[in-house]
Amino acid sequence: MIEAILTYDFLQNAFAAGLIIGVIAPLLGVFIVVRRLSLIADALSHVTLAGIAGSLFLSQSVAALAALNPLYLGIAASVAGSVMIERLRRLYKHYEELAIPIILSAGIGFGAIFISLAQGFQTDLFGYLFGSVSAVSRQDLWIVTAIAGVVVLFILLFYKELFVLSFDEEFAKASGLPSRWIHFLFMIVTALVIAGSMRIVGILLVSSLMTLPVAAAMRISGSFKGTILWSVLFGEFSVLAGLVMAFYFNLAPGGTIVVTSIVVLLLVIAFSKSVRTKTNEVVT
């Protein structure tokens, strides 16, 4: 395996991008899960699809854009989607969750139109939907690295505000924290992570890399920082194990990564249950 990675450029790109995504997706995912925003990640990934399909259509029909990396329009669509979700959530104050199906269906709708317009996209489509080991270019890797820089900087700079905002929004506002701004930045960073992770895990499975490792971490962690640490560990393990399997058995990495995360989650649930029964026995 190591030899193969050293030999093939495309494998280097895929593994380096995977390593980065394995950290940033669960890192941001912790905040998404505790703020009960998991479905927003799903909606944004579908909007990313529309951006990518639109970009591929444009590069076929406009000669000047032929070499455009579809990731750029994917990122733009995802960020625009996050801003629109916020607008809609404020418009439908009492039905905030309504924003999610609206944006999600808009994403799929536009995506489907562009996919049918862009001929020959069907072959790439599978890779975009479920991830690909071979399709990650050097440029993609640089984009993912830049996104990771933004995410890590954002979390480092706003960690305490994000924590307070996630735990108790009303308290955050009452104590005078700029909660609206921080939330807005949070949504944009989320959009970036989704667009960046899409190359490896695929659009349909991006949100699972942000939620499954967190779901497992929450079962065993004794603190918030611990939850972050375990989430990143589980996420990283799933991405690496998933990529290795995808390479050897020629499978879509999105599938192998997500199935690994589910196995990790089930093992953790079983483990935490047995530990809890044991402690209960000791107590009684």
């Binding site: 505790v34 305490k160 924590f163 996630s166 735990f167 929450m218 962690s221 603190s223 920082k225 939850t227």
Partner: peptide, 16 residues
């Protein structure tokens, strides 16, 4: 179900 310790929550009061 929020996975935070008493200490982490109280410290949050110092954020501002």
């Amino acid at each position: 179900g929020f996975p935070a310790t008493v200490e982490e929550v109280v410290k949050g009061g110092l954020a501002k």
